[in-house]
Amino acid sequence: MAATQFTEYQTIRVRVNGHEYEREVPVRRLLADFIRHDLGLTATHLGCEHGVCGACTIIMDDESVRSCLLFAVQADGAELQTLEGLADGDKMHPLQQSFWDNHALQCGFCTSGFLMSAVDLLNKNPRPSEEEIRHGLSGNLCRCTGYANIVKAVQAVAEQSQS
């Protein structure tokens, strides 16, 4: 078998959590690996690397995306938000606070993906029903909680925003 080389690089510019980054990346580098290992933003986790578990969910130009299914070069020019950009300093985002109040996490590995999916869900549908929340989060897998408290936590934030 012939030796193979993957040496093509491209320079990309992205805005992540309000900070501008310009980096040269191999064209095949996954967006998730770029975020985690090049930018050091390790709150985004990889649970399957084939787009099913949702742990790597981030917001890209106002849409939730799976960062394991994108190459970093596909994010060139994009605005990204990861879990690290959700809180206002140490003041938690209402979803983070609600996850805490409702015991919506155990091992915490899937939590980042759930929070980012929930952000996207509530952006698009600020008053979801329980069923809509369950469907909206059905692309994220959790193995610890059995989901009930995650659903409750999102519901509580939706109800707060209505009052």
Binding site: R36, H37, G40, L41, T42, A43, H45, L46, T82, L83, E84, L86, A87, D90, M92, Q96, F99, W100, D101, H103, L105, G108, F109, T111, S112, L115
Partner: peptide, 21 residues
């Protein structure tokens, strides 16, 4: 009582093994 471990996880400060470079 609410969990002591939650804030660091929720704020993205937890450290799993692949976070160690």
């Amino acid at each position: 009582v609410r969990r002591v471990e939650d804030p660091r996880v929720l704020l993205g400060k937890s450290q799993y093994v692949d976070d160690l470079d």
